[in-house]
Each structure stands twice: as C-alpha cells, then as structure tokens.
C-alpha cells in the first residue's frame, strides 16, 4: 500500500534514447515493481521486508515498489494475474517476471532481476 517514489526516474525522450542509455549503463535502468500480498500474515511481512531490503541495497534510487494487499483489493489480483501469494512482479524493465514466495532466496531474485553482475 505504500509507494516508494523517493527518486525520480531519469527523463527519457524516446525509445531510441532509452535504448542507448541502457546500453551505456545498465545500472541506470529504472525498476517498476509490484508486490502482492494477502493480508498481514508473517509470510506477507517477510516478503515486504525482503523486497524492501533488496530494493534498497541493489536498486537504490531507481525503483518504484508498490505493495498491494489483494485481501483488501481483490480486483488487483485478477488484473495482475496473481495466483500465488506473495508475488513480486517486475513490470519494468521488460520482460515481465514474477517472483512468488516470501522472497527469502535473495540470489535467485537478484538473478531474476538481472542484478547479479553488479554483485
């Protein structure tokens, strides 16, 4: 439910420029993430904590993390094609990836987020 927008994304004029930027430095890529949890269960809490931690550590200043409680807003479960909970959805950069579970396997998540190289 909380939205983390402490950093503005770098201005992108067009797709070409974005592509060139991405080529120049992958570290500048902006991440748009959504975390779907169901209620404030320990599992949900763990997932939120883990997601925040990963974002702060590896994506500092270039991410949006939206946390959605599908228990309260079930319509988002359908829209986000959510089956399991918790689910972290990486909407940007493409391709779309879904990480299900309490996000305790950090290495796997970093690999999935294409952030392993940096580490």
């Amino acid at each position: 439910m909380s939205k983390n927008t402490d950093t503005d994304p770098p201005p992108i004029e067009d797709a070409m420029e974005a592509f060139e930027l991405a080529l120049q430095d992958r570290n500048l890529e902006h991440y748009s993430l959504k975390l779907y949890v169901s209620g404030m269960s320990p599992k949900s809490q763990r997932a939120i904590d883990n997601a925040r931690k990963i974002c702060e550590e590896h994506l500092h200043g270039r991410f949006d993390l939206e946390i959605i409680d599908i228990y309260q807003q079930p319509i988002f479960a359908k829209e986000g094609q959510i089956i399991a909970a918790p689910t972290l959805v990486k909407e940007l950069p493409k391709p779309l990836r879904k990480f299900i579970g309490d996000l305790s396997k950090t290495d796997q998540i970093l690999a999935g987020l294409n952030l392993t190289r940096k580490k």
């Binding site: 399991a84 990480f99 299900i100 309490d102 996000l103 305790s104 396997k105 998540i109």
Partner: peptide, 11 residues
C-alpha cells in the same frame, strides 16, 4: 515465474 520461498495460493 520464479519460486523464491514459501508461498500459498491466496491469489
């Protein structure tokens, strides 16, 4: 989809 820990089918 990547499984990264404990989950359920609440969704």
């Amino acid at each position: 989809i990547e499984e990264t820990g404990e989950y359920d089918l609440d969704g």
